[in-house]
Structure formats: C-alpha cells, structure tokens
Amino acid sequence: MKISTEKIIFNMVSYLLIIILSAFCIFPLLLILSGSFTDNLVLTREGYHLIPVKFSLEAYRTVFEYPQKLVTAYGNTIMVTAVGTILGIICVSMTGYVLMRRDFKYRNRVSFLIYFTTIFGGGMVPWYVLLSKYLHLTNTYAARIFPSLMSPFLIILMRTFMQSSVPEELIDSCKVDGANDFTIYSRIVMPIITPAIATVGLFLAIGFWNEWYLTSLFISKKELYSLQYFLYDVLDNINFAKEMAAITGQPATNLPTETVKMAMVVVVIGPIIFLYPFVQKYFVSGITIGAVKG
C-alpha cells in the first residue's frame, strides 16, 4: 500500500513536469505550424498566432509547385537516409566494438585519435579539395553520405553503451567456444545492444534527413538535391524573383517568403514524426538486457 501511494505521487509529479516541458517545447512548434497556414502579408502584419488569423495554403502551394521535383527530393533523401544509416550503424558499431574490447591493446590510442579529430581540424578548404578534386565526390550521392557516416561522438557513445551492457565474461566465454572476433560482434554483441543501435541509428538518420550543407558544397545537379536543400532552393528562387522584380519593375505576384520558411519546417518534420515512434519502442524500459549475464 505504501509503495503504491508513493508511486501515485511520483507519477503525478512526473506527469506535471513532463507536461510543462512538453508545452515549452511545443508552443513554438504550434506557432510555426499555424504560421505556415497563414496568409503571408497577414502574418507580417498580425504576427504569429496559435490559430491562423487568415487561413491560406499559399505557402504550401509554393513548396509543392513542382510536385515531381519535391517527390524526387523526398525520394533521394529517403534513399540516402536509409543507406547512410545502415552503413553508419555498421561502421560505428564495429568501431565501437573494437574499442570496447579490453584485450585490444591500442584501444585507448585509437580512441584518442578518433576523439582528437573533434578538437583539431584543418578547416574547410583542404577538406573540400580532397573530396571534390581527389575523391571526385562532386555530384554523387557519396558526397552526401560519406562525410556523415561516422562521428567521434557516436563511436564513443557506442563504446560506452557496449561497455555497460556487454559483460566481459560473455566475450571471453565465446572465445573459449572458438568464436572469432567478428562472429562475437555480429552474433552476440549486436543483438544485445538494440537500444544503443536505435539511438545511434536515430541520430544518424536525423543527420542524413536534415542534411543540406554537404549538398550546398558538392551537389550542383538539381535531381541530386537533398530535401532540405531543395526547399532552401525554392526559397532562394522566390527571393530571386523578388529581386529581379525590384530591378526591372516587373509585377511580381505576392510571393510568400516568411510563410514558406514555416511550411518548409512542416514538410521536413512531417515524415520524421512517423519514424520516431517506430524507433521509440526500443527505449521503452523493460527490455531485459542483463538477462544474458552469467
């Protein structure tokens, strides 16, 4: 009985706090959502409201003006995200696994070498030259995948997760049974660390999904544009049309800019809202990992 009152109080307080945080997080998002459905000039005059002051689909019409291109951008972004995430998970987990192995003599040195890259960098120019001129990644999907395949943060995070959920004895006993290092990784370690894979996979996927910077550097062919960059490009073309109108005095129809920015957010976030709950089930407490222990 005592435990359950305690539980009730704990849950009530938790609910309250989580609701406060959620409200803090969602309020701006609702403004953005409503903004995207507001008439551009009305938005400029009246500002952001939770409910559109004057409903308009203008922004979405602009974003969807060339549905085929948008579909292409969506399509190749999904492709890049899928390929990149899978490759990324393999690379990150493999590296994390090696660095986790206590019998690997150079693990600290390699960890340091990996970590070191977050502190020191040679800057953009030599990196760009290497990738574009020597690796010929310009206008290839590889340019959008390769540079974000791994990150020191994710590798070390993976290593830490593995250290805390894969017992040393387990690896030793497998070795006694004659399994080689790769088999231990693929058959024993990977299945245990699903929450870690879900986390790392999620972060990788978000990185690829949001990617626009690499596109801006390496991609000049429109059909290879990432979703984010495609939308950025739509906005840029509107601004250009406005500028041209300013220079030549052509009548430009009322092209929305502010609301398009907001609609872009919605278009980008939309699919992710569906992805997240899918990944989420791996974080829901109760998966017994320790069970393999011993």
Binding site: M124, V125, Y128, S132, K133, T138, S216, L217, S220, D236
Partner: peptide, 18 residues
C-alpha cells in the same frame, strides 16, 4: 553555386583546383 555562405563557397571553388 549557391550556399548560405556565398563568399566561402566562391573561395573554395577557386582554390579547389577544379
């Protein structure tokens, strides 16, 4: 060439040796 940072991209294009 288009980028949020035109000056930087311009610089990189010219120094890349392409």
């Amino acid at each position: 060439f288009n980028s949020s940072d035109t000056q930087q991209k311009y610089m990189m294009l010219l120094s890349s040796g392409e």
